[in-house]
Amino acid sequence: MDTNIIQAAIPKFIEGFKVTIWLSLIGIIGALIVGLICSLLQYFKVPIVSKIISAYIELSRNTPLLIQLFFLYYAFPVIGLKLSATFCGFIGLTFLGGSYMSEAFSGGFNGVSNTQIDAGKAIGMSRRQLARYVVFPQGLSLSMPALSANIIFLIKETSIFSVIAIPELTNTALDLIGIYYRSNEYLLMLVIAYAIILIPLSIVLTILERRVRYGSFGN
């Protein structure tokens, strides 16, 4: 271990850190939006569309992000669709995360107890009112644990962006190892950098999960 090497590499790691955070953030927001839309369309069993969504979910959940990225980055230009690496990363994470988030939301919506829905019907709520005032508020709170697990998972998946040369944390570390041949220092910094992101985040998410647990009451 050489502290000089570590000090000298800090600025580069901060750059990588920013890229990881930024791409995770927009990727997760994209995934949440796609996931919510997909799960709503599936909840209302919109004909044809919900079949297409099921196919998308299976396709995205059962293939590795790495191949999805290779496909976007290397194979799409052949059919005339040339995207920048960063944009591919964003699309890839949204494509992968969208299905995971959709499953999380669906799990929550389907977990709302039948007594709640029956009670809503009994006081004469319409289907839309039921969804708006009964199923979604409770379903969202029920899906929170799965959502936060997915958020952590997606941040870790950004490490795969290094294969399409997006200068995020893992790519930065591997680059530095390639140039200076000091694997110990850079790998240690890499692990610490992920710990700095993920440990506080998982604590915050746990607190948040506890806060919004009201959905599981009355079941």
Binding site: S159, I160, S162, I177, V191, Y194, A195, L198
Partner: peptide
């Protein structure tokens, strides 16, 4: 193992086992 991404785990083993 939950915090460190699998890519990084793989590189940790790949670099540390032979050198250290």
């Amino acid at each position: 193992f939950r915090i460190v991404p699998t890519v990084v785990l793989l590189f940790l083993a790949y670099y540390i086992l032979p050198r250290q």
